[in-house]
Amino acid sequence: MLNDAMAARLRGAVYGQAVGDALGVPFEFKSRDSFQCIDMIGNGTHCKPAGTWSDDTAMMLGTLDSLADTNGVVNADDMRGKFLAWARNGEYTPDGDVFDIGNTTSIALGSGKGQTGERDNGNGSLMRIIPLAFVDCSDDDIRSASAVTHAHEISTSACVRFVHAARLLIAASDGWSAGASGENSGMIRARRTAAIDKAGEIAGLENLRATPRNQIRSGGFVLDTLRAAFWCLTTTDCYADCVRAAVNLGSDSDTTAAVSGALAGIVYGFDANPWTGELLGIDLLDRWIGKAISSLPDWQPESAQ
Score class of each variant (00 low, 15 high):
Met6Arg: 12
Ala8Tyr: 10
Arg11Gly: 00
Arg11Lys: 14
Tyr15Lys: 06
Ala18Cys: 12
Ala18Thr: 04
Leu23Arg: 08
Gly24Ser: 00
Pro26Lys: 09
Phe27Pro: 01
Ser31Tyr: 11
Phe35Asp: 03
Cys37Thr: 01
Asp39Ile: 02
Met40Gly: 01
Met40Asn: 04
Met40Ile: 14
Met40Leu: 12
Asn43Cys: 12
His46Val: 14
Cys47Ala: 14
Lys48Asn: 11
Lys48Ile: 13
Lys48Gln: 15
Ser54Ala: 12
Asp55Gly: 06
Asp55Val: 11
Ala58Lys: 06
Ala58Val: 02
Met60Pro: 07
Gly62Asn: 04
Thr63Ala: 10
Asp65Lys: 11
Leu67Tyr: 07
Leu67Phe: 10
Asp69Gln: 11
Asp69Ala: 15
Thr70His: 06
Gly72Tyr: 06
Asn75Leu: 07
Asp78Val: 15
Asp78Leu: 10
Met79Trp: 02
Arg80Gly: 10
Lys82Asn: 05
Trp86Asn: 01
Trp86Gly: 00
Arg88Glu: 15
Asn89Ser: 13
Asn89Val: 09
Thr93Ile: 02
Thr93Cys: 04
Asp97Trp: 10
Val98Ser: 05
Ile101Val: 15
Gly102Lys: 05
Thr105Ala: 06
Ser106Gln: 11
Ala108Glu: 06
Ala108Tyr: 02
Ala108Asp: 10
Lys113Tyr: 11
Lys113Thr: 15
Thr116Phe: 04
Arg119Thr: 13
Asn121Tyr: 09
Asn123Leu: 06
Met127Trp: 06
Arg128Asn: 07
Asp136Ala: 15
Ser138Tyr: 07
Ser138Lys: 11
Asp139Thr: 10
Asp140Ile: 03
Ile142Ser: 05
Arg143Ile: 14
Arg143Cys: 05
Ala145Cys: 12
Ala145Pro: 01
Ala147Gln: 04
His150Tyr: 04
His152Pro: 04
Glu153Trp: 10
Ser155Asn: 04
Val160Gln: 03
Arg161Glu: 11
Phe162Lys: 00
Val163Met: 08
Val163Gln: 09
Val163Leu: 09
Ala165His: 07
Ala166His: 09
Leu168Thr: 14
Leu169Met: 05
Ala171Ser: 13
Ser173Glu: 08
Trp176Asp: 13
Met187Ile: 15
Met187Leu: 12
Ile188Ala: 09
Arg189Trp: 11
Arg191Lys: 15
Thr193Ser: 14
Lys198Ala: 13
Lys198Gln: 13
Ile202Gln: 03
Glu206Lys: 14
Asn207Leu: 07
Arg213His: 10
Asn214Thr: 12
Trp231Gly: 01
Thr235Asn: 13
Cys242His: 07
Arg244Ser: 11
Gly250Thr: 09
Gly250Glu: 10
Ser251Val: 15
Ser260Pro: 06
Ser260His: 11
Gly265Glu: 08
Ile266Cys: 05
Phe270Lys: 07
Ala272Cys: 11
Asn273Leu: 04
Ile282Tyr: 05
Trp288Thr: 09
Lys291Cys: 00
Ala292Val: 02
Ile293Cys: 01
Leu296Ile: 07
Leu296Arg: 00
Asp298Ile: 05
Trp299His: 02
Pro301Ser: 12
Pro301Lys: 12
Gln305Gly: 13
